[in-house]
Design a binder for these strands. Structure first.
Lengths: 243, 243
DNA sequence: CACGATTTGTTCGTATGTATT
DNA sequence: AAATACATACGAACAAATCGT
């Protein structure tokens, strides 16, 4: 095994074990840093490093001025992925709206973005690619951030035509007469960077569930490449099979 | 906005900006901690805290004795999800084998696990649930860890019948004559805990892509509930739509 | 291959700021 | 307002891994 395990890691493991053993139940307050310092006979920084490990793993919730609590896994929102439905009608919007009525998608910004990957997905020149970022809010809380890469010649004034509470597929249908179809989707995960932290809240490095995809019009021509990010503890994508 | 931004965060953001600006390209070595200490005029721990943020976000790669490097995004393995194929033949095995020939799935352990959630998915009593953990290795490197929850009365000696390089679906077909069908799958993300770090490597809190699912037999009876974890930077699940 | 220099990792100590109770 | 508890920041020392001579 490991020749010498760092103190902070040993303490983190021991605390994890005691949580698993039920010494503190989810939502319950754990001993303060000062108490742990006395109990383990180490420096406060060492205790904090141990707690930081558990926080990063989503095991504990640390609140300034209040204390450290065993994390209470919140209910995850299950976003249904229906492979049979090829028309893109916004799975996130539909799912979130069934739980929270107050769902909005607002434009955060729009700018040229000569991304080679996006250009390849759209089959256009990188110089013609623009990126439009939006924020989906549910009940006033940030839920998802989306980046759409589009052909800026085809949709020159997209942001201006955006109406506050609509989703992009609705804007494209009503303003441009485009019906969207899914081409492909991909599910992956990533760590939250400074930008995502500012947009979605949470901590740097927190896991995000990422959904990429390309939607095409009725002619099969790519309309946009999208990358949507949601904090991992908030949602999951569920796909049911026909039996 | 933020009244007072912590020093370490300001430094992290500035370093991030300079990386984005191309001051250091991916794979290139960044200034040492000592240099950054002198440059920003702060304590070394403050610099380290800033770098820890970037490391957690996957922006930099820090190697003891060597230095800090701009992260080089490794190629992700795209695991194809075919909603049309309802027979469970092991999508991970199939995909990984197409790239690396040396793929094995070995049993890490088998033990009773009265998980209420698993019992519900299997429609059996929690006392009858056992969990079997396996490790998928590709080219000698750990790639994925899977936990299978099964009815221990139905599969009493499953681990004993396991042959080293097979996948579970093959074991069930050959040893029990069961053909598996997908019932549902779910994609989510989570932070790596101590257990996952030991099994998959990486850092505590690193993002994992998680795939849950239930497979049933030809009678529609649940056979197992599975939860597979892969380090986020290693893979993504891709679903193509029929046009 | 050995060894020293370099660079990051861990741990102690101390002080002050900020949020919550 | 005071006490409590976590957040930030500085200083110092030694350990461990890496790399070049």
């Amino acid at each position: 095994m490991s020749a010498r395990e760092p103190l902070y890691r040993a303490i983190a493991n021991q605390l994890q074990d005691r949580i698993n053993a039920g010494e503190w139940v989810p939502g319950e307050r754990m001993p303060t840093e000062a108490v742990l310092v006395a109990e383990f006979g180490v420096n406060r920084l060492t205790v904090r490093q141990a707690l930081a490990q558990l926080r990063a793993a989503g095991v504990v919730d640390i609140r300034q001025g209040s204390g450290t609590f065993v994390a209470n896994p919140p209910p995850v929102l299950e976003i249904t992925v229906d492979p049979g439905r090829q028309v893109d009608e916004g799975s996130v919007h539909a799912t979130v709206q069934s739980v929270v009525s107050d769902v909005t998608e607002t434009v955060l910004g729009e700018e040229p973005d000569p991304s080679p990957a996006a250009a390849k997905h759209l089959a256009i020149d990188p110089a013609d690619v623009k990126r439009l970022d939006t924020l989906v809010e549910a009940g006033g809380d940030p839920f998802a951030v989306s980046s759409y890469w589009l052909d800026r010649r085809r949709f020159p004034d997209l942001a201006a035509r955006w109406v506050g509470d609509a989703a992009l597929h609705g804007v494209l249908r009503e303003a441009y007469g485009i019906t969207l179809f899914y081409s492909w989707r991909a599910f992956s995960a990533a760590a939250a960077g400074p930008v995502e932290v500012e947009q979605l809240g949470g901590l740097a490095g927190a896991p995000l569930i990422v959904r990429d995809g390309v939607s095409v019009d009725s002619d099969g021509r790519p309309v946009y490449y999208v990358r949507r990010r949601i904090r991992a503890e908030r949602a999951s994508y569920v796909m049911h099979y026909r039996t």
